[in-house]
Write a protein that binds this DNA or RNA. Structure first.
Lengths: 338, 338
DNA sequence: CTGAAAGCGCTTACAG
DNA sequence: CTGAAAGCGCTTACAG
């Protein structure tokens, strides 16, 4: 019990007036507003979410789809989203659409269509065509972060980022530079764009023939395993590694150290993200602010939700990556021209 | 549009019958059921979540409160919960109640009371008294995982776990054993119980005077920083470290290696969890299955939700930790009796 | 086995 | 500024 009817009774007004007083819509005299407010807190009134949704057509909820919370970047974006949502008073329903799980399919086929939310944020989803269709079919605003395939995706320029990373190593004098990570399973578009940026820089430096992509899971253990393989072979050893993401870079550093290599003397490593552990490993990286991207996504989404259907919404400014030079990169020790 | 009324019209039955046919309650002839089902798929019927909730009193949603998704353990539990929920067809609303954020307060004061979910799972929440009161005030079943303060908490025996970890080192001949981690900010009960287990084992070995607790954040960088401090001082250096969790243990190993120590020759380290990186660092640990704990929590919660109010529900079996010996622990090199 | 009716707890034009 | 009434889209006893 303790519905709005009870509040109205205690305050001595009608339900309509109580509703207007509480939710702020329409005219209510200041005096009435106060009486209703105190009646509400007196009876401990909490509106029923489903009744509000049904009557108003607004769920006060935002959906978030992402491929798991294991990757540092996704977890950070999620936390940024959550914080913005909390301060806006909105609930967050989570859909963990990890690739290859039976859940992913159900999310796109059933869950998303249920109208549980007023808007959806896709993080790192990289949907295939059928999935994108499903998302476009739901009748509510959608905003995406770091997800290939969506219009107006909020994301750093992935090609630029690894181009700059590669140029950083080239500028230090490296020639044997390898690109590490991604390409296991379906290659995501973020991965391909980063690979492309590396390739572009190598080509521009006349090193197109040296282009090498070693695939691995985008994770610390993934980078570790792949790097352990590569670095074990002395003759093929690169002097520099451009990693698809910091997790991979960190894995590579751990592997290198285990093999007795000294970073950056024997090997330079550069990543993308500015992961929580980057400082610990003195990792040079192209830093991005993941949490901020979550907040920006929420801002944009809320504006889209408020906007008249068909109304224009100023897009969010794109996030920028900046080079943070620490101590995992230096001129190569072997300066012999290869 | 395309509500159940439309489905009923197409199938040539009443809304009541359509509803029964679709949601399975009550008697419907097989033939009618089929007609309704095909009408539903023909018009692309998706029930409105809020209408269903309002009419039935069931939201088909479970709430999850946890202190962030950064800690490996919490992220794993969350993924376990999500998967079980997806296969049960339930939505998950997430509340990130990171300690010290303004959001945490609002979650306990407002969000939890809104009746958005049929049941709540608290993960690692460690509520203080006021928070616990709030949770008890919401009128729905609550299940907790690794959260001090809740009745019937699903958790490994934290005292036992670090007692066994300590005994493992004692059994190898270590005497200078230190407990690393926790105790920054409000010490959680998980942390204190693990510390207590260490203390118990040390006392039993007659080493009560050697008991040492070095506090640090429960994170890899936290363990790294604290261990770098400790290990820098040669004279006070322990031969063994019992870490409050694997993150801390891994941080300590990284710090030790950076200082030129060889694990386990110069230092033994043991953790709790079996973190994703444990294999990479050859970490000896007391392993627990975090994802499974998430599923178990969902099972228990769903049974509580189904149960008659006041009805009994068989509790879930408690998870067990098992010692996984890798290569971060060995007999101490200095065998000189201290 | 099926249908008419009431009701879940709000919000929102519409009169006044 | 306020109230009576309809309605959001379902489910659920209750009759039949």
């Amino acid at each position: 019990m303790n519905g709005i009817a009870e509040v109205a009774r205690v305050a001595g007004v009608s339900k309509s007036t109580a509703s207007r007083a509480l939710s702020g819509g329409g005219y209510v005299s200041e005096q009435t507003r106060r009486r209703v407010a105190s009646a509400a807190s007196q009876v401990g009134y909490v509106p029923s979410a489903s009744a509000v949704s049904l009557a108003s057509g607004r769920t006060k909820t935002v959906g978030v789809v992402l491929p798991g919370v294991t990757r540092w970047f996704f977890a950070q974006v999620l936390e940024g989203i959550q914080q913005s949502l909390l301060s806006a008073g909105l609930d967050l329903v989570l859909y963990d659409a990890r690739i290859g799980t039976p859940g992913r399919r159900r999310i796109f086929d059933d869950f998303l269509a249920r109208g549980r939310f007023d808007g959806l944020i896709a993080v790192g989803v990289e949907p295939h065509d059928a999935e994108l269709e499903r998302i476009e079919a739901i009748r509510c605003p959608v905003v995406s972060v770091a997800s290939g395939g969506f219009p107006d995706d909020i994301a750093i320029d992935d090609m630029d980022v690894s181009r700059r990373a590669t140029e950083h190593l080239l500028g230090l004098g490296h020639r044997r530079i390898l690109f590490l990570g991604g390409g296991t399973g379906r290659e995501t578009s973020v991965e391909s764009r980063r690979l492309e940026g590396y390739r572009t820089a190598m080509d521009a430096a006349g090193l197109g023939e040296r282009v090498t992509h070693v695939r691995c899971d985008v994770s610390v253990p993934g980078g570790y395993a792949a790097a352990a393989d590569i670095l074990g072979d002395l003759r093929a050893r690169p002097t520099g590694i451009v990693a698809v993401a910091d997790e991979v870079a960190i894995g590579a550093i751990i592997a290198a150290q285990r093999l007795g290599l000294v970073i950056p003397h024997d090997l330079s490593v550069i990543g993308v993200d500015d992961h929580e552990y980057a400082g610990m490993f003195l990792l040079t990286t192209l830093a991005q602010d993941a949490r901020a991207q979550g907040s920006v996504a929420v801002d944009l989404l809320l504006r889209r939700i408020e906007a008249e259907p068909g109304g224009l919404v100023v897009p969010a400014p794109q996030p920028q990556a900046r080079l943070v030079v620490r101590n995992s990169t230096a001129a190569p020790f072997e300066t012999v021209p290869a």
